[in-house]
């Protein structure tokens, strides 16, 4: 028996929004410790890694580990039927070929359930090594989303240069070029608005804007985003999900010409 309950369906809706642009379907691995998802996008250039810890759920029970392959468009249709403040419970029997979503309104006067067929997905898991990154940038997630959206208008590739003074995002294309520089702030009383940089050595890497835009669909999950970079390894874009876990996106850098 698997059962996981969240008091607010809004959280699950946001999680789904954060992955469904990159993935058509995904396997949710459920165990005693929580729910995990690891999947590459169709072009194998980016990877989504989601962890929802069991202790972050309002109720969590997983007698036997199970993998639930879900079509994310179907899951999205179901979650649209929930109000943001509904309680959502995900249920499955051991060895089941369906999963059930139960939505309960706050006053319990409305209870709905939606059963969805599970899929057998043959997904390859990647071993992600622990890396000491040369640069770790923390900034407001809304600011990052804004920069990526603004710059993507002018080119397909963004160059991210990080030094101890700050981080610079640059794009060039047919129209011309654009640069956005963010200085490290010492805004201790407004930590949520600060830009902080931990740097071992400066890094310059290029990435496809299109993927960064997809990653910023996670913005509603967290006020902060963390970008971790080292030369010639994938960028990690991480959003913490308060008291529940995190979503990390890995993006392979563009090869130097």
């Amino acid at each position: 028996m698997f059962e996981a309950r969240l008091t607010s369906a809004a959280t699950l809706k946001k999680v789904l929004e954060a992955v469904k642009e990159l993935l058509n379907e995904a396997s949710f691995d459920c165990s005693d410790s929580g729910i995990q998802l690891q999947a590459m996008d169709n072009s194998h250039v980016s990877l989504v890694s989601l962890t929802l810890r069991s202790d972050g759920f309002d109720k969590y029970r997983c007698d036997r580990s199970l993998t639930m392959g879900m079509n994310l468009a179907s899951m999205s249709k179901i979650l649209k039927c929930a109000n943001n403040d509904d309680t959502v419970t995900i249920k499955a029997q051991d060895d089941a070929d369906t999963v059930t979503f139960v939505f309960e309104s706050k006053k319990q006067e409305k209870i709905s359930d939606y059963e969805m067929k599970l899929m057998n997905l043959d997904q390859e898991h990647l071993g992600i090594p622990e890396t000491d990154f040369s640069c770790v940038i923390r900034m407001p997630s809304v600011e990052f989303a804004r920069i990526v959206r603004d710059l993507a208008q002018f080119g397909e590739t963004v160059l991210i240069c990080c030094t101890k003074e700050g981080v610079k995002f640059s794009v060039s294309g047919d129209v011309g070029s654009a640069n956005v520089k963010l200085a490290q702030t010492n805004n201790f009383d407004k930590e949520e608005e600060s830009v902080s940089i931990e740097m071992q050595e400066p890094v310059s890497l290029s990435f496809a804007c299109q993927y960064l835009i997809s990653f910023t669909k996670a913005t509603p999950l967290s006020p902060r985003v963390q970008l971790s970079m080292s030369s010639n390894v994938p960028l990690v874009v991480e959003y913490e999900i308060a008291e529940l876990g995190y979503i990390r996106y890995y993006l392979a850098p563009k090869i130097e010409d």
Binding site: S43, H44, L126, A252, P253, D257
Partner: peptide
């Protein structure tokens, strides 16, 4: 995706 490399180059299969 142009001269984009894939993640396989960096990560091993688990």
């Amino acid at each position: 995706v142009g001269n984009q490399t894939t993640l396989m180059k960096f990560f091993t299969k688990a």
